[in-house]
């Protein structure tokens, strides 16, 4: 553990520590104290929790349907090409399917990772920057995906 710079007073003792100079105890991470902030009075965590459950149910249908269409039905993965994607996105139904799937999957995953970061990133700074990185990546992917779905041009050359 942390090395003590000043040795114990008694020279005949091999140990670095004694009664007057005890070793530092290992504090538990982010200990709760009297100064721990009280309730913030927002429902953000509740809505986050609820969103995970509801989006999870919808995603089971959307993702399994997506995988089935892309990988199993009609010759499987070999049929996927530019023409196949263009054909599907010609229909507003598949556009909506992919759009909802993109948004729900990204927000569901981002919220899940946010809770993982909250649980495991011990230092305030690490936690803040990891979350910033996560939010940036999420916003970028969601916006780029949305842009592609809406501005997709099948006649592009």
């Amino acid at each position: 553990m942390s090395a003590e710079t000043t040795p114990a007073v008694s020279d005949n003792d091999i140990s670095l520590y004694d009664v007057d100079n005890p070793a530092p105890v290992i504090e538990a991470p982010r200990k709760r104290t009297k100064k721990t902030p009280k309730a913030t009075r927002t429902n953000f965590e509740m809505y986050g929790w609820l969103f995970m459950r509801l989006s999870g149910i919808v995603l089971v249908v959307l993702v399994l349907g997506h995988l089935l269409i892309q990988l199993v039905l009609d010759g499987g993965v070999s049929k996927i090409g530019f023409a196949f994607v263009a054909g599907r996105w010609a229909s507003p139904f598949w556009q909506a399917w992919d759009l909802i799937m993109l948004w729900l999957a990204m927000l569901h995953g981002a919220n899940g990772l946010r809770t993982v970061i909250n649980d495991y990133a011990e230092r305030d700074n690490t936690r803040f920057w990891l979350k910033m990185l996560l939010y940036t990546a999420t916003v970028f992917t969601v916006l780029l995906g949305t842009l592609v779905i809406f501005t997709f041009d099948p006649n592009i050359r």
Partner: peptide
């Protein structure tokens, strides 16, 4: 664990 003897 005894902090008066060792940190380990």
């Amino acid at each position: 664990f005894n902090p008066e003897v060792s940190a380990e």
